[in-house]
Simulated scan of single mutants.
Amino acid sequence: MTDFAVSYFGGRVSLRFAKGVPFAIAALVIAVIVVGITSLLAGSYDLAVWDIPALLSGQGDKTALTVLWDLRMPRFVAACLVGGLLAVSGALLQGATRNPLADPSLVGVSQGASFAVVSLIVLWPNVSIWARPIAAFAGGVCAAMLIQWLSAGKRGENSLRFILVGIGVAAIISAGTSALLTYGQINRASSALGWMAGSVHTASWGPCAVLAICAALCLPALIWVVRPLTALRFGSELAIGFGLPVGRAKFGVITLAVAMAAFAVAAAGPIGFVGLLAPQMAQRLTRAGVGAHLILSALGGAVLVSAADLLGRTIAAPIQFPAGLVSAVVGVPIFVLLILKRANSSQL
């Protein structure tokens, strides 16, 4: 398959990607649209597909407008933003560590962010909700730094060791979170426990705006990390030969990955395995460079979380299962298969 290249401004800005990339992007966009329309129609209040254009333009029954714009639309938008942030976070972690098993929920990042947010809810409930992303980022960074330090070995990098250390640290942090939920004031603990389920069912336009702002702030940094990640694909030694300051590059990429995961966790709680599944799905759709891979991962994450939320609220209606539970049911078997495959060719 040949590559396709375009350039702008006299060659100062150029894009090069495999010809299969636009088709993969189009397929994922169509999948997002299909899941979105289904999400807007599904529920106890019936909406017809031919009513959607009028309702989107603000015309129609007042109750239908309220259901669409105040309940279902922000829920779908939040699911897409959370899924995109978690997926790109996973793709960045996998690229920086050269580890296809890396995922914010598996290597302690989501657990560190969750512990920080639960601490705010249980111990300092009067703190502004705007403090959650900051606390989640701090908790995620601390967890990521601890895992990097503990997994560093004398024989260099080891992907499986990184994963196993991350799982152990995540378990310890989760134990601390459980202690807060067990011994905290019952009302505060109940609120934190509902958030811990990982769901977007209470999403409103406020959190959607915060997520959109966070994603927009991360976009320039995402453009910057494309080149370092491209060099890191060849390994640390070759990247050093290319003139890349590997230590600083990895620190920047991992920090950005932690920030994106923290923003998503602060808004919707921990939703596991999205950062693992979406990049793997993007990689299997088509051959792509780092930039295209990040775009495909973001779209795949939006599809996964929005579909998980749709399935969770319709499979046993009126009972609603959180998206985090659905993603775990799907993600655990795939993770086991991947780690077994990895173990056959790696040594601890």
Results as ranks from 00 to 15, higher is better:
L299G: 11
L256T: 06
A138M: 04
T97W: 14
S297C: 12
C218D: 03
K250N: 10
P245Y: 01
T38D: 10
A31Q: 04
I271E: 04
A152H: 12
F162L: 09
A79P: 12
G324N: 13
A268S: 13
I295Y: 07
A91S: 04
P125A: 01
A91Y: 04
V6W: 11
L211S: 05
S306C: 15
A221I: 10
C214W: 02
V6D: 06
A78F: 12
F234V: 15
L277D: 03
A138F: 13
R16D: 15
V107F: 13
G153H: 15
Q59C: 08
S39N: 10
L277P: 00
I334K: 07
G300E: 09
K19D: 07
A91L: 00
E237G: 00
R16S: 15
G243Q: 04
G312T: 13
A116M: 04
P228E: 09
A54Y: 05
P22A: 02
A282T: 04
A343Q: 10
A175W: 13
I163Q: 06
G252A: 15
L56Q: 09
G275K: 02
F23A: 12
V225Q: 03
V210F: 08
L256D: 01
S105Q: 00
I167V: 15
R155I: 06
W124D: 05
P74A: 02
G252Q: 04
V253G: 02
F137K: 02
L229S: 12
G84Q: 01
A292W: 01
F76I: 15
G83E: 12
I33W: 10
D51Y: 00
E157L: 12
P133V: 08
V274A: 10
V77I: 13
A170R: 09
W50A: 12
V127H: 03
L47M: 08
V13I: 11
T230S: 15
W69T: 11
V329M: 14
A197W: 10
I33N: 04
S105T: 01
L325G: 03
P207A: 05
L325K: 06
L304M: 02
V258E: 10
N344L: 10
G156W: 11
L40N: 08
L164R: 06
V165N: 09
A209W: 13
I186F: 12
V109Y: 14
